[in-house]
């Protein structure tokens, strides 16, 4: 192999290995866009959670725990709420997936979606609880629940897009 090819190959590898991190960061930005759709704003899906979960399941090597922490930090800083609860929510989701990684090895899409249902519930519940504690009031769990349902509904669409992207990369 010539030297030049080696460089391009290495650049390619680096680009591919950081793409899950950057795609998830882009999702955080995307969730910030004002879509001007009536009554959607309170229940905008937790896109970062979908990204973190997807790559923790399919490519845990490309979604290390520090990346999860950074994504959570950027998300909490940009949304303008308390910094911390969102990070811990994402870390919980990541830890749950890593803890049960053997379960995901042979799981079908439907099973993974079901697992996402449980993991997202845990992550959002932790975020809600910690935000409530930090603000010293009991926040209404209603909007969080709707956000949870919308996030569940969004999971297949995003997962499909991610899988397509991954296949495109691997060609």
């Amino acid at each position: 192999m010539r030297q030049e090819e080696g460089v391009w190959h290495r650049l390619d590898v680096v680009a591919r290995s950081i793409s899950p991190f950057f795609v998830t960061l882009l999702l955080v930005l995307f969730a910030l866009l004002p879509l001007h759709i009536a009554d959607l704003s309170p229940i905008v899906p937790a896109l970062a959670l979908i990204g973190v979960f997807f790559w923790s399941v399919h490519r845990p090597d490309l979604m290390p725990i520090w990346a999860v922490f950074l994504i959570g930090l950027v998300q909490d800083v940009l949304t303008g709420g308390v910094i911390g609860p969102g990070i811990i929510g994402l870390l919980v989701a990541h830890a749950l997936v890593v803890w049960q990684h053997r379960f995901f090895l042979a799981a079908s899409f439907a099973v993974i979606w079901f697992a996402f249902m449980l993991v997202a519930a845990a992550a959002l519940a932790v975020t809600w609880l910690l935000t409530s504690i930090a603000m010293m009031t009991l926040l209404d769990p209603g909007p969080v629940f709707f956000q949870y349902l919308v996030t569940l509904a969004f999971y297949p669409c995003l997962a499909w897009a991610f899988l397509r992207g991954q296949r495109l990369f691997q060609r």
């Binding site: 969730a31 910030l32 004002p34 879509l35 309170p42 229940i43 905008v44 926040l139 709707f146």
Partner: peptide
């Protein structure tokens, strides 16, 4: 111009 609307269950702010 309003360029950012975080939405979500915990805050009501815009950028």
């Amino acid at each position: 111009r309003v360029v950012g609307d975080p939405g979500g269950a915990f805050v009501r702010t815009v950028l």
